[in-house]
Design a protein around this nucleic acid. Sequence first.
DNA 1: CATCGGACCTGTTAGC
DNA 2: TGCTAACAGGTCCGAT
Length: 270
Amino acid sequence: MPELPEVETTRRGLEPHLVGARIAAFDVREARLRWPVPAELVERLVGQRVSAIRRRSKYLLIDVDGGSALVHLGMSGSLRFDAQTDPRRTHDHLQLHLETGLLLRYNDPRRFGCWLWQPAGETHPLLSRLGPEPFSEDFDANRLWRLSRGRQSAVKNFLMDPAIVVGVGNIYASEALFRAGIDPRRAAGRVALARYQRLAEVVRTVLGEAIDQGGTTLRDFLRPQGTPGYFAQSLNVYDRAGAACRRCATPIRRVVLGQRASFYCPQCQR
DNA sequence: CATCGGACCTGTTAGC
DNA sequence: TGCTAACAGGTCCGAT
C-alpha cells in the first residue's frame, strides 16, 4: 500500500501524539510479520519515552533511549490511534499503550511489514544500502544519468530501485514518468541527461504534492486519525487503463514491467 | 554487476 | 449465487 507520501503522511499523523509520550505496554498479538518481531524490541520499548519519529525511505523510526523501532508497512500495513475501549480489529497485530491513554495499533493483513530494533549509533542492514532521499541534494539528474549508463532495464524499474533513489513506488513511478514525458518501457541507459533533469524535478514535485494531499487512498489507506488521502484525484495515469489521457485524450495503456502494472500515455510519453 | 523470478501473505474483485 | 483466478501501494533473496 504505502509509498513515500503515505509513509510521510503516517509519520506526520503520529508525531503530535506519539512524541513525548511514554510507552506503558507493548502487546505483540501476532509476531509473524515479514521477520518475527524480536522479543528485544518489546524489552527496549516498554517504559521508554518517544523522543522523535523519523522517516528514512519507506521506513519509520520511532526513537527512544538506546535506539529505535524500525517499522515498515509493507504492502498492507497501517498505524492508527484508538481509544483504549475501541475493540481490536482483524489483523491488528501489535499495539502500543501510551501513558496518555491512547492506543497505537499496527494492522497488516498481508504481514509483509516489519517491526525491528535498531540500536543507537548503528545503521540497520536494511537501511545500509539505500540511495538518497528524493528531497535531498544527492538526488539529481547527474546521479540518474551516471548510474543508468549501460542499463538495459526499463527506466521505470530503474526509478523504483531503492539503490538509485528511495521512496518511489509503483504509483509515483508511473506518475513521475508521465509528467516527464518518458515512456516507462524505455531502457534507462537510453534516457538523455536533459530528460533526467526533468525526471528528477517531477519526482520531487509529484511526491511533494502527494504529501500535501495526505497521500493516495486507492482502496484502504487511512491516516492514523482515520482520514483518507486525497491525491487519487490527481493521478494522471495510475490505474486509469483505457481512460482518456487528461492532456491529449489518448487512451491510457497498461503494461507489465518487472511484474508490476505500469500505466502510460502512448502519445505524451516517448 | 545487472537482471530475473520466486517468495512472503490475505483480501477483493472480475470473470465464468 | 458460487467458484476460481488474477491482482493489490513492497522488497528481499537466491539463481543466472
